[in-house]
């Protein structure tokens, strides 16, 4: 499911079956790291989109949780925890995150063990078929992660 009117309609009908939320965490910065951050964000969105395509009957892909890198980590963690508990209250059993920002992994929080980190890759100057291969590879890793958490 994606955050579109048609998918939300289906979600409301089949609520019992769709119990997993996926939130991409997208960092933003305008200084020297901008290009790296943008490229990472692009990759995260591609992987999340491909995963949604394969598991659309159970996974709800939410609009990205975007933040500036200069924001305080503590308040970000708080905000994300709020998002998570809101979703849980609404009937989601699992909430997963996918990001390219290593800092999320560093801290031992409730978030870090439900987080999938994609590697930083310079997608823009990559061959089309290789890019496809890479996305497929990451997606299947993420897919296995989901399946292992489900069972």
């Amino acid at each position: 499911m994606k955050w579109t009117a048609a998918d939300v309609e289906l979600y409301q009908k089949e609520k019992d079956y769709i119990d997993t939320a996926l939130i991409p965490l997208i960092p933003i910065t305008m200084d020297d790291g901008a290009k790296t951050a943008a490229s990472g964000g692009e990759f995260v969105q591609l992987v999340a989109g491909e995963l949604e395509r394969q598991l659309k009957g159970r996974v709800f892909l939410f609009p990205p949780f975007s933040y500036f890198l200069s924001e305080s980590r503590q308040s970000l963690v708080e905000r994300l925890t709020d998002w998570t508990s809101l979703l849980m209250e609404q009937g989601m059993k699992y909430v997963f995150y996918v990001t390219c920002d290593r800092e999320w992994k560093g801290k031992e929080t409730a978030i870090s063990d439900r987080l999938w980190l994609v590697p930083a890759v310079p997608l823009e100057n990559m061959d089309e078929s290789y890019k496809y291969e890479l996305i497929r590879d990451q997606t299947s890793g993420l897919l296995r992660f989901f399946i292992s958490q489900w069972s």
């Binding site: 769709i18 394969q54 598991l55």
Partner: peptide, 8 residues
């Protein structure tokens, strides 16, 4: 495409 809810 699964005929249930469209997974692969």
């Amino acid at each position: 495409i699964c005929k249930h809810l469209g997974c692969t």
